[in-house]
Simulated scan of single mutants.
Amino acid sequence: MDEMMQTQALYRDDAYAAATPATVIESSEAGVLLDRSVFYPRAGGQPGDTGTLVWEGGAMPVADTVKASDGSPLHVPAPGAPLPPPGTTVEARIDWTRRHRHMRMHTTLHLLCAAMPGIYATGNQIGAEKSRLDFDLPEPPTKEWVTEKLNELIAGDHPIGERWITEAELDANPGLVRTLSVQPPRGAGQVRLVRIGPEDAPVDLQPCGGTHVRRTGEIGRVEVLKMESKGKQNRRIHIVLAEDTP
């Protein structure tokens, strides 16, 4: 794919953009590349978006979104789905309900780092129904304590924003990285920081390329289902949105 034709990733500027007109650049059974997209490609533990590409006389269900070789969103068609030819104008529509749940869950995992300041994530998986965070901590608190602390932070309705720093600034502040398994993407010269809380006194601040809600209050109540041991010091915590519990 021509570097000059790299997809404009609209989700980076507005995680709430659920649809956009776009032009097909390349199209095959492996996936469809667009000149612009609201679809988030699978990365950093956050699943790729699903949805639909609609054009005059046709529609292609998007079963997954992954990264193309240049990092652009590659819209993977459902098996047997019709493909829009290159040059076609389409309406790219994500499954907003699923994406918004991912945003709520992803922000909750950031709040876990705020709830337990000493932890470093060793793995994570965000899901619409359930999410998990693996972390390195020999003596973790109880799941009841974590549930209460998370909901206190959520109820604080803290604003969420972002800013960009250089890779050199990140190297000078290694404490910003709270993950041991996934490192911030490098090579572009800049790294995106996601901030929860005010700029002068953030509740949490760490590199992240995923999508998040605008305020913590939008998450709603959450519940820690269980906490289990996954090694000598590694622990795994499972989280659901409280609305999904009986």
Score class of each variant (00 low, 15 high):
V66S: 07
G31F: 12
A121C: 01
F135V: 09
S28D: 13
T65K: 10
T52N: 06
T88F: 10
G51C: 08
L111M: 04
P61N: 10
F39P: 08
P86L: 07
Q46I: 10
F39M: 11
T107A: 15
S27T: 14
D70F: 11
T108N: 05
E29N: 13
L133Q: 00
T142M: 02
P41R: 10
P41E: 05
E148D: 11
V66A: 11
G127L: 04
T50I: 13
P61R: 11
W96N: 03
M105N: 07
T23I: 12
K67H: 04
T50G: 10
V76P: 08
G58Q: 06
N124S: 15
G48S: 13
L150S: 01
G31Y: 13
L83A: 11
I94H: 10
D136W: 14
L53P: 15
D70A: 14
T88G: 11
R36Q: 15
K149P: 00
E148S: 07
L153D: 03
R93K: 15
G48N: 13
T142H: 00
G80R: 05
T50F: 01
S37W: 05
G123W: 01
A22F: 03
R101T: 05
L33I: 14
G127E: 06
H100T: 01
Y120N: 12
V66L: 13
T65M: 08
L33C: 03
I25P: 00
F39Q: 08
M105D: 03
G45A: 06
L150M: 01
E29G: 12
L112C: 15
L137D: 07
L74H: 01
Y120A: 13
T97H: 09
P79C: 02
S72I: 03
L74C: 14
T122Q: 06
A155Q: 05
A22K: 08
P140T: 02
R104W: 02
G45V: 08
R104K: 15
V32K: 09
T50Y: 02
T108A: 12
V146E: 02
C113Y: 00
S27D: 07
